[in-house]
């Protein structure tokens, strides 16, 4: 009977495939080692069960889902529900008590903290959980080398507070040839997003966005929009990068060098749009958190939680910061 491969060939292929398969976890462990040196392993405790609700940031939604899955494996009696419509949905949820965890990709504004304090009598507790780089994405065919922050400001805002001149075409931003007369097509997030507010504060210097920024409902939608639009530019978390887009290097001003959006650069301070991702909880001063919430946060700050952060494309916290957060949980 004629077959595709002879018996010898089939055996060789099978063994080779099996060896490749074995090599994959080894790759994984190497990445884990890099991250896990900062945090300790999580120690399981007893008596953890119940429902846990998380309402908040869209940037953190994948991360929260992975954490929830892994936590569920440790404690099968825990049911975790994750919802991510934007950071601005977290404070109302924490105030109303519909969620115990409020992931946010920006800090709470003073009036949100006031409203929380009015309801509960104490201020909310902010736990840092991961590092993020806010990347500026362009289409993969776009040849631009990089942009300075004033240029990014004047591309996205109509108030141009950094003082740079107005930029409407890719030629104004420095490209030549066919790109020179192509108008820049802007993609951004909607106003419920913490990413929107963070970008407005740090890149636009609290100015106003242009009316022509197309508001997308989620971080992935921004990247999809830019991927389909040759003249597109948009901002989103670095974890949402795909092969269809380029995350361009940014410089703080004309005199600083262009730096790539990596976590090492963000920690050093050379990449200007690095930020911390937070989870807010309602912790009464002097009293511990409910056991379920506390154990979840300990899990997030432990080695397993930080490994998941790396897996999703975000940056793990440095050891010193993890210690500080664990102190806040006491």
């Amino acid at each position: 009977m004629r077959t595709l491969w002879s018996r010898r060939e089939a055996v060789v292929l099978g063994v080779a495939g099996f060896l490749c398969f074995l090599a994959l976890p080894a790759q994984q462990t190497r990445a884990d080692d890099a991250a896990s040196s900062a945090s300790k392993t999580y120690e399981k405790v007893s008596g953890v069960d119940g429902n846990l609700n998380s309402i908040g940031s869209d940037t953190l939604i994948n991360l929260m889902t992975y954490w929830a899955e892994a936590f569920n494996k440790l404690y099968p009696n825990v049911r975790i529900q994750v919802e991510g419509k934007g950071s601005a949905t977290a404070p109302p949820a924490l105030i109303a008590g519909t969620a115990q965890l409020g992931p946010m990709s920006r800090r709470m504004k003073p009036d949100e903290e006031d409203a929380f304090e009015k309801k509960h009598g104490f201020r909310p507790t902010r736990i840092s959980v991961a590092l993020d780089c806010l990347a500026v994405y362009v289409h993969k065919d776009n040849p631009i080398r990089g942009l300075t922050l004033p240029q990014v400001d004047c591309i996205f805002s109509k108030t141009c507070k950094s003082g740079y001149r107005e930029l409407t075409t890719w030629g104004d931003a420095g490209l030549t040839g066919a790109w020179a007369t192509l108008p820049i097509s802007l993609y951004g997030r909607n106003s419920a997003s913490g990413t929107y507010t963070y970008f407005q504060e740090h890149a636009l210097l609290k100015g106003d966005y242009k009316d022509t920024v197309k508001e997308q409902p989620g971080s992935a939608a921004v990247v999809n929009g830019v991927a389909a639009d040759r003249a597109g530019i948009g901002y989103s978390g670095i974890g949402y990068r795909t092969s269809e887009v380029r995350a361009i290097p940014l410089a703080k001003d004309d005199k600083s060098p262009l730096t790539e959006p990596t976590f090492a650069n963000a920690l050093r301070g050379t990449y200007p749009l690095g930020r911390t991702l937070y989870i807010y909880v309602a912790k009464k001063p002097g009293e511990p958190l409910p056991k379920l919430v506390e154990e979840f946060l300990r899990f997030v700050l432990a080695r397993e939680g930080q490994d998941i952060v790396v897996k999703d494309g975000y940056g793990p916290l440095p050891a010193k910061v993890i210690q500080q957060q664990l102190e806040l949980l006491k």
């Binding site: 404070p91 909607n190 419920a192 197309k214």
Partner: peptide, 30 residues
């Protein structure tokens, strides 16, 4: 659309309608 609140009759760009505005902004409004 890109939910862009512009005042332009041209069919070659987007707009922001009352209904889409409510859907986009209400999760954020306290």
């Amino acid at each position: 659309t890109g939910n862009t609140p512009i005042l332009d009759w041209s069919p070659l760009n987007g707009m922001r309608t009352l209904s889409a505005n409510i859907a986009v902004e209400i999760p954020e409004a306290p």
